[in-house]
Nucleic acid binder design. Structure first.
Lengths: 346, 346
DNA sequence: CTGAAAGCGCTTACAG
DNA sequence: CTGAAAGCGCTTACAG
């Protein structure tokens, strides 16, 4: 326990506590020699200011909160990792809170939990990013927030996203280029903004390729592997089944692979399977999944950058704080047998 | 932003701030009528004490830290979820920090990051739970900690674990009962305590069953799916390959399944595969993995309970704070074709 | 450029 | 059982 305070440092450096404070916070108006003296003492003593005292007397807490709907998902883990690393770099701390919107009183419970914490900012992950009630709650509490991968619905806040529609189009193009004409599509949870966008990317690319999409080939899942299994099984039971299935996330693509394996279908020869997200689990099957790499960690790091910008608080609606990050098509064995033929390719 | 302070509550309730403080913290020596009056005002105003002021003036921070080696693992996600829920219940907050022990200066970086945070406690997850340098660092900083799933190596701290050895024995018994005699075993990362314990459970059960374990059937992985793939492939390339492979975690079992699928082997008919952990990904393949359900969330919740016990700080070595949680063998399709034959079983 | 004073919102230690 | 005083370790606003 550091019994070391700003006074100790001040005494040893022969300056006032206020001057030490100035140096620590990188404020101007300190003569170079004094600054240096303070820094040396800080280094020797390995002094760290008390975070609570700092927060109590100032308006900043150096604390960010990451709000998550489903902490067990691989998506959440990646986002959290990115946020964590950037927070560490910037000497911020990250509090993780789960928001269970099934509870009757979730809004009160959340605001109670966040209040008194003097948060510098909040990161909203899908599908929370599209919850208007949640956005209002934060606005009312005057806590700045940044949304990760929001759908079109706008609010006066910064966000970091990627272009889901063109990514889905690119994946579709990939399948068409492989010669597929009958392509099944499994939609995600209607509550997620990405569900509509990804579908739209798929259909628009199909039209662009002059391919009509048989309505029976479009099924509604909920982003779980179980739903992927069920919907894919329904597609494969069709009299004229698709030769490729584009599941709009990796979990459903895994479910699709399960259904294919159970039926003894050769993947990708008889059925090609594509996913979306590049979840860790997209690499643990044989064949591995072709997918869209979504730079979740990088998106979270960007979100931290925005939130820690002192300007952001007063300019939440500034387009400058609305950023897009590049995705990448990752071709693996589930669509292209050549892409994953050797153990070394894992 | 709550401009609401303890003084406001005190004024409205017609008592002193100190009395409000007593009520809020559940301290004794408050007349029932006053207590009730205070509680009513607190409810009406929806007052929450400022966490920073509280921490600054007292020795408690109501803040716990979860230290994680690999935040992207499913293991970490489960543990975090359990800790999160219990913290929420108890009005604690959880800070998550990644500990990268590859960095040269990781110890200083960590202590700098934790210092000034006045943590009430720290939860150590594998493999950090077995790091003696880390334990020493925390002891020196006088921060109480609880270890999750430590190996035998003792330190004066509470822990929550399960009996890895008997779980591994039970899994082995399951395989033997199915008629397997040549059973391959893939070890985990030697740095993890569980690696030795699980192997020991396997070998002791084999002996108990009067089965000699051919040394060539025991391979060393590192808990990654890639290592599972490589080691399983080596086992399957043997002139006399095993009829079952027990991979000592689910990721390696998935790698094993990949290797089997790539070779066109029928699972479980030609090769039975068993894992360990009951990771989310153990359910996304066909067949699904037989595994040991490790109650990670419950273990984390227990850890929070120990840490939030005010007695713990001064009695870290008390056996009372060393707890074991029950595991469960989960039989699925990768060892027993009947266990996962229908889509409904997912 | 520098510092003395006051205060952030609580709790601790003390007195009654 | 109850409260007035002092203080936790910083920063804000002010004065010079």
């Amino acid at each position: 326990m550091s019994v070391l305070t700003i006074k100790d440092v001040a005494a040893l450096a022969g300056v006032s506590p206020k001057t030490v404070s100035r140096v620590i916070n990188g404020e101007p108006h300190v003569r170079p020699d004094k600054r240096e003296r303070v820094l040396r003492v800080v280094g020797e003593l390995d002094y760290r200011p008390n975070a609570f005292a700092r927060s109590l007397s100032s308006s900043r807490s150096y604390l960010l909160a990451l709000l998550i709907d489903d902490p067990a998902s691989g998506y959440a883990a990646d986002v959290q990792l990115g946020a964590l690393m950037r927070c560490r770099e910037k000497n911020y701390h990250l509090i993780v809170e789960r928001v269970e919107r099934v509870a009757v009183d979730w809004q009160n419970e959340l605001s109670r939990s966040l209040r008194g914490l003097n948060l510098d900012g909040v990161i909203l992950t899908p599908p929370l990013c599209d919850d208007t009630a949640l956005a209002k709650l934060l606005e009312k509490a005057a806590i700045p927030f940044v949304r990760i991968a929001p759908s079109g619905a706008e609010s006066a806040s910064g966000y970091v996203r990627m272009d889901d529609a063109s990514a889905a189009s690119e994946m579709t193009r990939h399948l068409v280029a492989l010669g597929h004409r009958r392509i099944g599509f499994i939609k995600g949870d209607p509550a997620h903004g990405a569900t509509a966008t990804r579908l739209q990317g798929f259909t628009s690319e199909m039209e662009r390729s002059n391919l009509t999409t048989d309505p029976v080939l479009i099924r509604e899942g909920d982003f779980s592997s179980r739903s992927g299994f069920v919907e894919a099984d329904a597609l494969l039971a069709l009299p004229d089944p698709p030769t490729a299935i584009f599941a709009s996330n990796d979990d459903m693509a895994l479910g699709t692979l399960m259904a294919a394996t159970r039926r003894g279908l050769a993947v990708p020869q008889t059925l090609a399977i594509a996913g979306f997200d590049d979840a860790p689990s997209s690499r643990v099957t044989w064949p591995q999944l072709t997918t869209i790499h979504q730079p979740k960690a990088a998106m979270a790091a960007e979100a931290v950058d925005i939130l820690t910008n002192p300007e952001y608080r007063d300019h939440c609606a500034d387009p400058n704080y609305r950023r897009a990050i590049e995705y990448r098509l990752v071709v693996r064995g589930s669509t292209d047998a050549g892409a994953g033929a050797t153990p070394g390719a894992i």
